[in-house]
Design a protein around this nucleic acid. Structure first.
Lengths: 245, 245
DNA sequence: CCAAAAGTGTTTGGCCTACACCCATGT
DNA sequence: ACATGGGTGTAGGCCAAACACTTTTGG
């Protein structure tokens, strides 16, 4: 097993950006110059995704590809789907593009799709590469391969999993207050969580870990800071009716 | 794209067999003679699984492989996991076996795992092939590749979805008694449902429909018969915490 | 009459919900 | 002082769990 690209296995990342204006999705530019040899540079947009190395785990490949293509790192990506249709490359242009960029002969590619969520207000997103772009969900309906379908499925997942998947924590800073967590969950819910009951509930959840630290320089009583323990959450979610809302 | 085996992509099927005594899992014998050239035939057991053809959908591959290796067909198989660790072939014997049976050079294989459920009492299962075998979950703990781990994950899925997916009704006849339903759910649970509470709960569920019919020729008080209304169930499951256990 | 499963009510404890006020800090 | 979010307790309702006996049939 050598460190070379496997021509049959790829990953694709759907990264949603959360902002008060709405939800956007992160795409990357795909250069089409080499194919049609036109004098003017041309491109279209696709999901950040690529083939996987033979000695690479899928999770690692997803993080690597996202970093390489968009500059974004430290996004928690969750595997959610396997794409295996036989007509994924039905557009000859897509196949040629993939062969020209990888230097490999491509017949069939099975793709494992990942899903992530970031806060567009985060300053860390300033490392965004030139070739990547946030677009609205409405404008991501005619993408290469089956990428529009993947985005559609990820969007359904987003709507149905606010209380059972750890997506809320992807929108929060490392250290957050209970109030911040509540605000994010209220956006998913459509608003209306009682703060006293919410705090009581959180005290029983071992994956919300209090830190020996409080807010500073805030114009109110400084709040206790907490962190999210993902491992403990993964245990928690295995229980029968595991919802933290 | 020709009809040949893809050396990087496989499917594995975890088929659980339900019986009043407990749950069993379907394994197939793997001949090891060719490897060690011993005079006495020897084999061990593994999950029914195999490489996928390049022009074959994963779902189709899973059904085909299950049919070919065990003789069982018409089982609803659900995709539930992707296995991608780098040490899936850490046992050299497994790699050699796969290479000798496929005639291919194997480096890395990613496997897509499927899950299915059948009633061991069903007469249709008589087509079971000689080389396949139902074993208890306890005796399936030291299997080749990562098959024990796959079974473990499928078992968790089974437990998690017993009360939220309609899988219990796939094991019951068209007309069933509450006691029969309870027995099925008790096997999923690992046993222990209070019949009085269970009957109370069921009376509130409109998808368990009483028929104008009772048991006949039973050596006890004849029980009311019920049928399962799938459409009403689909409505029911859309609710937030929809579980009928 | 015996075996086997059918069927039926009440009590208890835990959990979720609703609800209102004082606290610490920066401006 | 005042604005802002931080942080706390209690009472009521609902639901799930624990618990035992009588009924109906076939053998």
């Amino acid at each position: 097993m050598e460190s070379q690209l496997n021509p049959h296995i790829s990953v694709d990342c759907v990264v949603f950006g959360f902002s008060p204006n709405g939800i956007k999705v992160l795409l990357v530019k795909r250069e089409l110059d080499k194919l049609n040899e036109s004098p003017t540079p041309s491109y279209d947009l696709k999901l950040p995704g690529s083939l996987v190395y033979n000695d690479e785990l899928l999770d690692d490949a997803a993080s690597r590809v996202l970093k390489e293509l968009t500059g974004i790192e430290n996004v928690f990506l969750e595997r959610f789907e396997v794409l295996d249709s036989l007509d994924r490359m039905k557009n000859q242009k897509d196949k040629e593009w993939l062969e020209s960029t990888t230097g490999l002969t491509i017949d069939r590619v099975i793709s494992v799709a990942y899903f992530g969520l970031v806060n567009l207000a985060d300053s860390e997103l300033n490392g965004l590469s030139e070739r990547s772009k946030w677009v609205t969900l409405e404008s991501a309906i005619q993408l290469p391969f089956d990428h529009s379908k993947i985005i559609q499925r990820a969007r359904e997942l987003l709507l149905h999993s606010a209380g059972t998947e750890p997506i809320a924590f992807d929108l929060l800073p490392e250290k957050f207050t209970i109030f911040q967590l509540q605000q994010v969950l209220e956006v998913f819910n459509g608003s209306g969580i009682d703060s006293r009951n919410f705090r009581k509930k959180l005290k029983t959840l071992d994956f919300i870990v209090p830190l020996a630290e409080k807010q500073i320089n805030v114009a109110h009583k400084p709040a206790q800071l907490y962190k999210f323990d993902r491992k403990r959450f993964m245990q928690f979610r295995k229980q029968k009716n595991a919802s933290f809302i």
